[in-house]
Design a protein around this nucleic acid. Structure first.
Lengths: 157, 157
DNA sequence: TGCGATTAGATCGCGCACGATTTATATTCC
DNA sequence: GGAATATAAATCGTGCGCGATCTAATCGCA
């Protein structure tokens, strides 16, 4: 063997065990897959769901404002919002005071769907078994992730 | 107003504050963006980086084994591995004992690159400022995320 | 007033991620 | 041995996510 492994045998089985990035990546994949099942009822994707929630909490936002909330750029949001518009969920129109900005509003159907979506977080918790031990630690988990993400964004800027 | 908000004003600014899923999503985006910068030196994407690390820790894996490690299916891995093969990083060949399975090995260049990648985790930590407080909590964070991801995968299955 | 700089979105190309389906090989069981 | 079944990977279509670039509208400032 010209390349003997300097690692214990278990590293062949769990080569990513010490990597936060991988745990976040894998958790993100897992979340997305479960969300697909839950959101399929409305034909929504996860980022589309986020847009509806954002607009429910405050309608008539600009593309840029949505981007700040979701950490996405116009190159991602523009086609996504066009698909949502085609699905009759939102309306897009240029701001008359500044023709550069596009304002996004919930349509009537969009508001109906957005209101129905209030049950989604509960559905997700129920689907994962609502372990009270885990639920109690979620605020800490969120705080750690948000702090880490802020550092990463700062480093990438 | 036909739809007065039942929420405090701050929910317009931070509508996703209480959602773990969103913190994970946002952290995953942030990680990916910083990784792009770091991996650009080798022309690698993050999942391609993961494949190289996996093969460095244990070469000659099947597509299915890689999928179990990375939580990906052949519909994602096959084109990804073909791009890596085209880039001269890996070799793909059918297993002679079972012609259904494809085995993936590091090429000579792939091994060189994989060895160079050992500096990547350190580069990432350095780029984010290596806060000792945060580093100390990473094992807990990883454990929480892995446990959550396992529950999500179980629920989605 | 006018022109360079800035800003908001849109467009394009590429690489994931994944549901659904297909192809090819192995296995099972009679 | 041969048909039904199972398994591994590949293929196809769609929707993100993002770097790079473009267009159009606004702002700044002499």
């Amino acid at each position: 063997m010209s390349h003997p492994s300097p690692h214990p045998a278990s590293s062949r089985e769990k080569p990513f065990a010490p990597f936060v990035c991988f745990s976040i990546y894998a958790a993100s994949l897992a979340f997305n897959r479960l969300y697909k099942q839950v959101l399929d009822r409305w034909g929504l994707t996860y980022p589309q769901y986020l847009v509806l929630v954002a607009l429910r909490e405050g309608d008539d936002r600009t593309v840029g404002e949505l981007g700040e909330l979701l950490f996405l750029e116009s190159n991602t949001l523009t086609p996504l919002l066009k698909r949502m518009e085609a699905a009759g969920l939102v309306e897009r129109r240029r701001d008359s005071a500044d023709e550069r900005v596009v304002r996004v509003q919930l349509s009537e159907r969009g508001r109906t769907v957005a209101d129905e979506l209030t049950c989604v977080p509960g559905d997700m918790i129920a689907a994962t078994g609502e372990d009270p031990e885990m639920l109690a630690h979620l605020p800490d988990l969120i705080a750690s992730l948000d702090s880490l993400a802020a550092k990463l964004r700062h480093a990438a800027a």
